[in-house]
Amino acid sequence: MKKLILTTLLLLSWAGVSLGGIETRQFESPEQETAYKELVFELRCLVCQNQNLADSNAELAVDLRNEVYRMLKEGKSKREVLDFMVARYGEFVLYRPPVDKATALLWFGPVIMLAIGLLIVILFIRRHRNRPGENDPDEIIPEDDY
């Protein structure tokens, strides 16, 4: 029972956090609402740079949320809203930057690190397996030695 109460409280507090900066909005369609939510979660607040527009209560974040809402209401697509933001604030506003020369290391770095790690593990295992003097099931002791 205690566990259940604690879990509920924890979930409730989390819900409060994720809805922090979002105003009540009326949308024309569920698609529009989804687009709005995706956009405010994907766009960075320029004032508090480690927060997205949805989380931030900075004045600029409120203004930009209004701007996103207005554009969607006007029938603009998600792409158009993102282009609008990039044209003004640069690619830095995107929490999911496009893959290009400057961001290649960011995108592929983890995969490269994983590959290096795997390589080290493989080499390590191989070397230990082939170390002479340790119990090798295939090693045969010559008859003369007995």
Binding site: L46, V47, E59, L60, D63, L64, E67, R88, Y89, G90
Partner: peptide
Amino acid sequence: GRIAIDWGVYG
């Protein structure tokens, strides 16, 4: 602050 958004003002 609407025009400032067009100018990319953030601080």
